[in-house]
Amino acid sequence: MEALTTRRKVLEQKRMTLLERIYLPAIASGMGITLRHFFKKKATINFPEQQRPVPRVYRGLHILNRDEQGRERCTACGLCAVACPAEAITMEAAERKPGEENLYREEKYAAKYEINMLRCIFCGFCEDACPKDAIYLETTFAPANYNRNNFIYTKDMLLLGAKREEIKPPLTQ
């Protein structure tokens, strides 16, 4: 059979020498590596007191945008849900009643709009698919929680101006 890569190595199983068999030199060199790391810069930070900066194009928690008059832009067309590779988005549509023109932009609106943040992979396809510029990904992300249900974000948590817990990391310049 033809080799798939050029980096293949044949494994050799030789009998160990005396120095290798007593293990002590290997332990000493291993401890040496450990000791060297005491004086190196730490790879981790103390989250949440310290936070790493994220770029401006970071894809974090979703937000449902409003238009200039404060009306909801989303018409529940379902394109974000069909574009979503993780199937994290579900919605239910409703018809706008007369007198609600100041609340919703189009004759149809999302009565229910839920994103499961545990399923979401933050790819931003929903943002790309949206024909109404209604959904955007912000630079914030969801805090940890003990309950899985709390990661299902409902419409009142997603709408622009809604109150929700979120971690806002600093932005890179």
Partner: peptide, 9 residues
């Protein structure tokens, strides 16, 4: 059926 669901779902 008006606005109840999108056909592709």
């Amino acid at each position: 059926f008006r606005f109840r669901n999108r056909v592709w779902f």
